[in-house]
C-alpha cells in the first residue's frame, strides 16, 4: 500500500507548500458556491481520530473531507489510551483495520502521529500532536497572511506567547521560514522551548523577550498565541496581569502598531483569551484576520486532503 503523510511542516518543501496554498485558493471558491461539493475523493474514507477534544479542528477537517465527497467518520478516542490499557498502537491498528484511506490524528502527546504512521498503511495527517506540531494550522495561517499581504518573502512576522507549549509555533516557524518570511519569537524566557538559542541560530529566526522592542522594529504581522489556563498558576509568570502588561496585544500596543503600519495583520489561532494575550479591540480590529483564519481552515484542509488522497499513485505525499 501507499505511505503518504503530513506529519510535520518538515515533510513539505517550499514548492509543495506553495502548491497546497494555490490549491487552497481554488478550494476557497468552492466555499462560496451553492453546491459545495467536489467529487475528487468519492469513495475515500477519512477518519478523524481525536484523542483530545478540538471541535474547531475536527469540524474543519470533517467539512473539508465532505466537500471533497469523502466519507468522513469521527472517532473520539479520548480516554481510550494508556489509562484504559489499550495501547496507542492497538487503537490505531483497530481503526486502520476497518479499511480507511486517511487518519486525521489529534493527540495530547507529541509524536503520536509520527508513531502511528509507522504502524499503519493509511495516510496520516497530524491534526496537532501535543506540544509538537499542527501543520495544517500553519498552512492556513500562511494562506491567510498571503491573501492579506501577497508573497510572504521578506515579511517580518512576530509570534508572541506560550512558545513552549504551543504546537502552532513550531509548525508556523517552519512554514513561514520556508516561505521566506523573517520570524521573531517573543515570550518570557520561562515560556520558551529549551535550546531555543541554538535552534534559532540553526534555522535563522530571532528570539526576544521584549515585545515592545520587537514591535517598534516594524512588523507585518503579529501572531498571538493562547496562554493556557493551567500555565497561569504554574510559576511560568507571576500573574496574568503582569503577562498582559508585558506580552499582551493591548490597546496602546495596537494603536502604535496600526499607526506605524496600517497594513499590519493580527492573527490568533484561537480560542482567544480576550483581555489576557489579546485585547478585544485588537481581536476585532480591522487588521484582525482571526475569522479569515477560520474560514481558510476548510480550504487548506481540502487542499491537503486532495493532494494526499486524490491520486492512487504510491510515490506522492510528503513523508515516506
Amino acid at each position: 500500500m501507499t505511505r503518504r503523510h503530513l506529519l510535520s511542516i518538515d515533510d513539505v518543501d517550499e514548492g509543495q507548500i506553495r502548491e497546497i496554498l494555490a490549491t487552497a485558493g481554488e478550494m476557497h471558491d468552492v466555499q462560496h458556491r451553492e453546491v459545495k461539493k467536489l467529487p475528487a475523493l468519492r469513495g475515500r474514507t477519512v477518519v478523524n481520530l481525536f484523542f483530545e477534544d478540538s471541535t474547531r479542528t475536527r469540524s474543519s477537517f470533517e467539512i473539508a473531507g465532505k466537500w471533497l465527497s469523502a466519507d468522513v467518520i469521527n472517532i473520539s478516542a479520548k480516554g481510550s489510551s494508556a489509562s484504559k490499557g489499550e495501547s496507542l498502537r492497538d487503537t490505531a491498528m483497530t481503526v486502520a483495520a476497518m479499511g480507511v484511506d486517511a487518519l486525521v490524528i489529534r493527540h495530547s502527546a507529541s509524536g503520536a502521529a509520527h508513531q502511528v504512521s509507522q504502524w499503519i498503511d493509511a495516510a496520516v495527517i497530524n491534526a496537532g500532536d501535543g506540544t509538537h506540531e499542527h501543520p495544517t494550522q500553519a498552512l492556513l495561517d500562511a494562506y491567510t497572511l498571503q491573501r492579506h499581504h501577497g508573497d510572504l518573502a521578506g515579511r517580518h512576522i512576530a509570534i508572541v506567547g506560550d512558545l513552549t507549549h504551543s504546537r502552532v509555533v513550531r509548525s508556523n516557524l517552519l512554514c513561514l521560514t520556508k516561505l521566506g518570511a523573517r520570524v521573531t519569537l517573543v515570550a518570557p524566557v520561562t515560556l520558551m522551548p529549551s535550546g531555543i538559542a541554538s535552534w534559532a541560530a540553526a534555522e535563522g529566526f530571532s528570539v526576544s523577550s521584549d515585545l515592545d522592542e520587537v514591535l517598534a522594529g516594524g512588523v507585518d504581522a503579529v501572531m498571538m498565541l493562547r496562554v493556557q489556563k493551567e500555565r497561569m498558576s504554574g510559576g511560568y509568570f507571576p500573574t496574568p496581569r503582569e503577562y498582559t502588561i508585558g506580552y499582551g496585544l493591548t490597546r496602546p500596543r495596537l494603536d502604535a502598531l496600526v499607526a506605524a503600519n496600517p497594513e499590519v495583520a493580527i492573527c490568533h489561532p484561537g480560542p482567544m483569551n480576550r483581555g489576557l494575550e489579546i485585547s478585544a479591540d485588537a481581536a476585532d480590529a480591522a487588521q484582525s484576520l482571526v475569522l479569515d483564519q477560520v474560514s481558510a481552515g476548510v480550504a487548506v484542509r481540502m487542499s491537503v486532503l486532495y493532494h494526499l488522497l486524490a491520486s492512487g499513485e504510491p510515490d506522492r505525499g510528503y513523508a515516506a
Partner: peptide
Amino acid sequence: EGELSGRLGL
C-alpha cells in the same frame, strides 16, 4: 532537555 526536546515538543 535541550534543543531537540524543544523541537520535538517533548
